[in-house]
Design a binder for these strands. Structure first.
Lengths: 228, 228
DNA sequence: CTCCTGTATTTTGGATCCAATATTGATTAT
DNA sequence: ATAATCAATATTGGATCCAAAATACAGGAG
């Protein structure tokens, strides 16, 4: 097994060649979030393994991980399928995010340091650059970093992990959202407002602002979802 | 929307002999929750697979699932270990449960049917029987059914799945809690009170009661956790 | 033509084997 | 003794092979 170029593994700080399984995991995530594998698609292990130049064993373990994250579903003896979110599913994910992220933001504001604010500002700068350039992928990445920076300041690693998993499960639809110029502009503005409220340590207002931010996203995504 | 198609459900309602992987998953859960595998223990694949009379392949896939659920941790090239919850971890899990379960209860109360109340009452009857008999395992099972019955009435399958995962991650410590006669009696009483509030559709009071219920549990478990 | 049935093919599930990495233990120099 | 080094062993990671199940397909009965 040849070690591929990939180093997107965000795991432990160990400097080690990634295992085939970690490589496959990253590739699968990318394939799903970029739409290369589309919601509802069955995942054929043989061909996919061949394409990634690994055997089916690490592929299957990676799929189990993705199943746990809700990116794919599994039926015994029938295989894995890219998760197809219904409208209800999407709303539910955003409802749960609301519950978890509100708490994360409150805690984060309570113990916010200048370093965190600065990191968020840097992420926001990248968001604005990507938004202007129309670079959807970079924007999604920077946007995520912006929010996670704040959440992580809460000092609740499990909570952050769950939030991250929820984000993952809707990644496939996020690129759609950023595809629209108007949405990109709105994200930039809403982030600026949220950042300002964070600087002023106004937890309640920040929570409200981010709730609205999410609502805009889900409403916009709902509009382009295929009818059931 | 109780999802008639239930894509999130584990078995899709099909009556089929379990795969080795499903069998192993169940056995591992039991081994961890009953303390047969204890927090911090490394999981030796070869011997465990032999003991369960399967190869390492389905074992490893089951472990990946448990990793996603937080019951085991994983380090590349070093293997899997039964998760050892710190005090902070335990408190964090209960905090997250608070956030999610409060919402689930509110939604459940809003659409509560007599069937659900009846199912909860039946589960409670079993809790009381097991509590009297000192049957810790049966009590844990019935207790879980009691709560899940209510949560599921919320009609939010993903939310329930996450709550269930959180419960799983602390299962190893729950049996400790039920080991105490006084705790068992308190659980019975608190359930009765909660059930009464549900019958009266008093969401706020029910949420408060269940929050106190959780607090008692976490406080009691904290007391017996080994010091860091 | 439709529906069933049995068969061939595809696809997934699992077992075994080999390779890569980590751990252990002995040995030696300081 | 202690620490470093290197061989021996144990354990995990991955590839290949075979078995079991599902799907696709062809042919025949109604």
């Amino acid at each position: 097994m040849t070690a591929p170029e990939g180093r997107l593994a965000a795991d432990e700080g160990r400097r080690r060649p990634p295992t085939a399984q970690q490589f496959v995991l990253g590739e699968l995530r990318r394939a799903i979030t970029t739409g290369r594998l589309r919601p509802g698609d069955p995942i054929r292990q043989e061909s996919l393994a061949e394409e990634l130049a690994v055997s089916r064993v690490p592929l299957r373990e990676a799929l189990k991980t993705l199943q746990g994250e809700g990116l794919v579903t599994y039926q015994a003896h029938r295989g894995y399928f890219v998760e197809r979110l219904s409208l209800d599913d999407l709303r539910e994910v955003y409802l749960i995010r609301e519950l978890l992220e509100a708490e994360a933001v409150r805690r984060a504001v309570a113990r916010l340091t200048d370093e965190v604010v600065e990191a968020a500002e840097q992420a926001q700068a990248e968001v604005e650059r990507a938004a202007a350039a129309g670079d959807v992928l970079a924007m999604a990445e920077a946007n995520r970093r912006f929010h996670m920076t704040v959440f992580e300041a809460a000092g609740l690693p499990r909570l952050v992990r769950m939030i991250r998993t929820l984000w993952d499960s809707t990644d496939a639809y996020r690129s759609v959202y950023y595809g629209e110029e108007a949405n990109r502009r709105r994200v930039v503005e809403e982030h600026r407002a949220a950042l300002d409220l964070l600087r002023r340590r106004d937890a309640d207002a920040a929570v409200r602002a981010l709730a609205a931010h999410r609502t805009h996203a889900v409403t916009s995504i709902e509009a382009v979802l295929p009818p059931p």
